[in-house]
């Protein structure tokens, strides 16, 4: 009888432990698996180059070497922490008073001059950069446009479109680039993708010892700007600021971050002239 009881207890505890492990396992699985090939990566980078060059055609880089270098140094540091290791990330501040940031596939990230002017410190800037890196990591634009490096479909076989020197390829590439431009500047990504990137940004701030609450400060400024209708573009392409602020509250409640670093002085030195 004793033996049976012991065995029963052992089995019960083990079952509980296994259930507990299974419940936790999906959390571990949230660390995403790459589901793309080397040819997909090459096509993603090349497509990102083209898209970046198109953005730069409309909005050239701000002529401020120190600002560009600062944003690139901070961005490189964050990309070293959380970026896809197979990509090289580039960051640019573009000339437009709009308040927004754009993540092109392949690691090309743009912040507007209007956004930089709205920021108060390095922690806020780091939050924006981490949010955009998360979009690149998750290949949000690529997934939305259903692009692949190699494909039997003429529409989604990006590699051939990019390298093609025929008119058909040019037209197909132009169409798909137009769609990507519309996604970034008009339609915007899915609300869930924006919120997912917010969570990564908060995790990155926390991991890099920045003040997590800075992200809320930025969102409150964006909210105010939206209400005053200064951030029209952002209204179109991002979820409501209140929903995003709730996400910050939830994160703080869950992880109790205590970091206080904002590097406001360094930000003022390099970003505000």
């Amino acid at each position: 009888m004793k033996l049976l009881c012991s065995l029963w207890m052992l089995m019960t505890f083990t079952a509980l432990a296994q259930t507990n492990f299974r419940m936790r396992a999906p959390k571990l699985a949230q660390i995403k698996k790459p589901t793309y090939s080397a040819s997909d990566i090459k096509a993603e980078i090349d497509f990102g180059k083209g898209l970046a060059a198109r953005i730069l055609h409309t909005y050239p880089l701000v002529d401020d070497q120190e600002l560009q270098k600062y944003v690139n140094t901070l961005g490189a540091g964050l990309a070293a922490l959380l970026g896809r290791p197979e990509l090289t990330f580039y960051f640019g501040v573009i000339k437009t008073p709009d308040v927004n940031a754009y993540a092109c596939p392949g690691g090309y990230i743009f912040l507007t001059q209007g956004l930089i002017q709205m920021l108060a410190n390095e922690a806020e800037l780091a939050g924006v950069l981490a949010h955009e890196i998360a979009h690149v990591n998750e290949r949000h634009v690529i997934k939305k446009l259903k692009l692949k490096g190699k494909d039997d479909s003429a529409i989604s076989g990006l590699g051939a479109m990019i390298g093609g020197a025929t008119n058909s390829f040019r037209v197909a590439l132009k169409t798909i680039t137009d769609e990507a431009m519309n996604l970034l500047f008009g339609e915007g990504l899915a609300v869930s993708e924006e919120l997912q990137s917010d969570v990564v940004a908060l995790s990155a701030l926390n991991a890099a010892d920045y003040r997590v609450g800075s992200y809320r400060d930025l969102l409150l400024k964006i909210k105010k700007s939206m209400e005053e209708q200064n951030a029209k573009v952002l209204t179109k392409t991002h979820p409501k600021a209140d929903d995003r602020i709730k996400m910050v509250d939830k994160f703080e409640k869950k992880y109790h971050p205590t970091n206080e670093k904002t590097n406001a002085e360094r930000f003022k030195r390099y970003a505000i002239h």
Binding site: K42, I45, D46, F47, K49, G50, A53, R54, L56, H57, P60, A160, M161, I162, G163, G164, A165, T166, F169, R170, L173, K174, T177
Partner: peptide, 18 residues
């Protein structure tokens, strides 16, 4: 006529790419 040179994308996008 296809080229593997990735800069081909700039040519393919024409004047719209800087």
């Amino acid at each position: 006529g296809l080229k593997e040179d990735s800069d081909q994308i700039f040519k393919n996008l024409g004047k719209e790419a800087n």
